[in-house]
Computed example of a mutant assay.
Amino acid sequence: MRPFSKSLAVQIFVGTIQRLPQSARPSGIYKTRVNMPVYLNINGFEGDQQADLRVHGGPDKAVQLYPVAHYAALIKRFPELLGKLAPGAIGENISCPDLNEQEVHIGDLWQLGEALLQITQPRSPCSKIDEKLDCKGVAAYIAQSSKTGWYFRVLEPGMVTAENRLVLVESGNEHYRLCSILSLMQQNESAAIGALQRCLMAPGIADNLRLKIEQKIVHLNRASTGTP
């Protein structure tokens, strides 16, 4: 690993639990931009809530970032979403116009205000995105196109202000580049097994991602040997 000095402007979003419009399921996908200092602890920004703690929230998914540039691709694919999509629209806590999955790695360390963050895993988009936007297929497109965004773990809690920038402290190994991991998880050839095994060694990798990679390796091994 080697130190970098990349510094990026961001917007911060938090939200309380609300009901989705069709199913009335509770969800924390509704976020509002924060323009005042907010404390960031190991479970996320103060005041930010998640409804289903089985799949959302917790230390490995404390903070979610979604690249702003992906919204243009979403609108191109789903023109009916014009006017509905803007930073914060799909439940992210951090919006950044100058960062994407090609530029980050599992294990990267970032400073935001007083808090130190570590990238742990990509986001797995769910059907609540479709329901909030009243548009079927959005979550599937996000997953298939690898425009997922990612989660951070909070290694050191602290205050964050609207003026704070996201600063890269330490970058991970090229084997752990997020776009590469997303691509490997979509492959069905046994040749991907070695690369997937290397991914398991990524520092700070979330338990959930580790499990998914291990399951993928088992599946590829069985497919290559014809084992049911």
Rank of each mutant, 00 (worst) to 15 (best):
L53Q: 15
L53M: 12
D52M: 07
L53H: 14
V55P: 07
H56S: 11
L65N: 07
G58F: 09
L74P: 07
A72Q: 13
V68P: 00
H56R: 11
H70S: 00
L53F: 02
A72M: 09
A51M: 07
H70F: 02
G58D: 03
E46I: 04
V68Q: 08
V63M: 08
Q64N: 14
E46P: 03
F45A: 06
P59C: 10
Y66W: 13
A51R: 06
Q64H: 15
G58Y: 01
A69S: 13
P59D: 12
A62S: 04
V55R: 15
G44L: 02
P59I: 13
Q50D: 00
F45I: 11
G58K: 00
H70M: 00
A73E: 12
K61V: 03
A72N: 11
Y71M: 04
K76L: 04
K61A: 07
D48S: 09
L65K: 02
Y71H: 11
L65Q: 07
Y71T: 02
R54H: 12
G58E: 00
Y66V: 15
P59T: 14
G47T: 11
Q49L: 12
G47V: 09
D52E: 09
P67T: 05
G57H: 04
H56W: 01
D52I: 12
K76T: 05
D52K: 05
Y71S: 05
A51S: 06
F45P: 03
V63E: 07
V55A: 01
E46F: 12
P67K: 03
G44N: 09
P59N: 04
V55L: 10
E46S: 15
G58S: 05
H70P: 00
P67S: 05
E46Y: 02
Q64L: 15
Y71E: 03
R54G: 13
K61G: 02
E46G: 05
L53W: 12
G58H: 04
D48K: 02
D60T: 14
Q64F: 15
A72H: 13
D48M: 06
L53N: 06
L53V: 06
H56T: 11
D48L: 10
L65M: 09
R54F: 13
A72I: 11
G57D: 08
F45Y: 01
D60V: 09
Q50I: 14
L74T: 08
K76S: 04
A69T: 08
P67M: 08
I75D: 03
A51V: 10
A72W: 05
A62E: 01
G58M: 00
Y66M: 14
L65H: 04
I75A: 01
H56L: 10
V63H: 03
Q64G: 13
A72Y: 13
G57M: 13
A72D: 12
L65R: 01
K76C: 03
A69N: 06
F45M: 11
Y66I: 09
V68R: 05
Q64K: 10
H70I: 05
V55I: 15
Q49W: 01
E46T: 13
A69D: 14
A69P: 01
K61Q: 11
V63K: 10
Y66H: 06
H70D: 05
A73N: 14
G57I: 10
A69V: 08
V55N: 12
I75K: 00
A69H: 13
G47D: 12
P67W: 13
D60Q: 10
K76E: 11
V63D: 01
